[in-house]
């Protein structure tokens, strides 16, 4: 990618399609931007060389992998998923082999994050717990305070703060050094209970923070009139980080599906990857506006999204067995 290319979300276009051939699940870039790690319904992991598209695939988990995280220096990759385990890998090994396996939760591990600086690992799971682990996978602390499955975890990049979001739309703020619950943010718009179908639905699928540290985004869905039939729409909720108060709801303007993940871009705008009955989209917002300023429809429904560390490349995983890489700039002439 030429270094001179500048961010222009409205010119976002599909740069590459990488085929795995089986329905894809999660994806993350390593912090150095060399690799994209992904997972799929065939229980394999894949590592894609970002420059060449070369794929290395292997099997290690007993179930689907739902999330990846990396040590701050990018040398260690951690995968975790529905077999309750975290597996540690050397990110760039030619033939990946597990360095360490840790049974992390009773039930799925739904989310991982790593604290910059310390390398502390946070995991959230179906046992309603948030757990802290040392960089080499030793248990450090259990944070109990959610009454529902934990869907997302997020370390604040500069403060002594961990956030965790659950199915019911509760976002807990923990003081990392003490494990103390500091406050809870209300993201209840991302949850509903359907009395007719007798199901809980929604959840805080992702948490992210704006580059200036002022705005927190919680991503998920709303308008779930028929949860079992996938009738719902993506929603991003923005909070004033300092006050902990909701400042804006950002519906995806007619798009059907779930907001899987939102990332802030260098100019402060947001990109949200959505997928569901309405297909797959990248939906772009600015924090000051309710409506998206741009949407890009992708070829197939989206299941996860990751932002390259350089901020100009977005990867999405798709049901049709592909990874799609979208460049957030003008097309190369």
């Amino acid at each position: 990618m030429p270094a001179t290319m500048s961010l222009d979300a409205k010119l976002t276009h599909v740069l590459h399609e990488w085929k795995h051939g089986k329905p894809m699940v999660a994806c993350r870039f390593d912090p150095l931007g060399r690799f994209l790690f992904s997972s799929s319904e065939d229980y394999t992991l894949q590592r894609w060389n970002v420059d060449s598209g070369e794929k290395t695939a292997w099997e290690a988990h007993d179930s689907w992998v739902r999330d990846f995280a990396f040590s701050p220096d990018g040398q260690v990759c951690i995968s975790a998923g529905c077999d309750d385990r975290m597996i540690f890998w050397n990110t760039a090994d030619e033939k990946p082999a597990p360095v360490r396996t840790v049974v992390a939760h009773k039930g799925w591990v739904r989310a991982l994050d790593v604290q910059q600086g310390t390398g502390l690992i946070a995991s959230g799971g179906n046992d309603n717990l948030v757990k802290l682990w040392s960089a080499d996978g030793e248990p450090v602390q259990e944070l109990a305070g959610h009454a529902n499955n934990v869907y997302s975890v997020f370390f604040h990049p500069t403060e002594d703060v961990l956030l965790s979001g659950d199915l019911a739309g509760v976002v807990n703020q923990w003081e990392v050094s003490t494990g103390k619950l500091v406050r809870s943010l209300e993201a209840k718009d991302l949850h509903s209970y359907n009395k007719g179908q007798q199901v809980n639905y929604g959840g805080v699928r992702d948490i992210s923070l704006s580059p200036d540290g002022k705005v927190l985004a919680c991503t998920g869905l709303h308008k779930a009139t028929n949860p079992l039939g996938a009738v719902n729409e993506p929603l991003v909720l923005l909070f004033d980080w300092a006050k902990g108060e909701k400042i804006r709801s950002q519906p995806a303007d007619g798009v059907k599906g779930i907001g899987w993940r939102t990332k802030f871009l260098a100019d402060g705008s947001e990109v949200c990857g959505t997928g569901g009955s309405g297909g797959g989209y990248l939906v772009f917002f600015t924090p000051g506006e309710e409506k998206p300023f741009h949407k890009l429809k992708l070829k197939d429904t989206v299941r996860d999204m990751a932002l390259h560390p350089k901020g100009l490349l977005v990867a999405t995983t798709h049901y049709d067995g592909h990874i799609r890489l979208c460049q957030l700039t003008a097309k190369k002439a």
Partner: peptide, 17 residues
């Protein structure tokens, strides 16, 4: 016992139900 008609998010809903 309702409801298992899980055309969407079958795994999350079966987990709950």
């Amino acid at each position: 016992h309702s409801n298992y008609d899980t055309h969407n998010e079958n795994f999350n809903f079966h987990l709950e139900q």
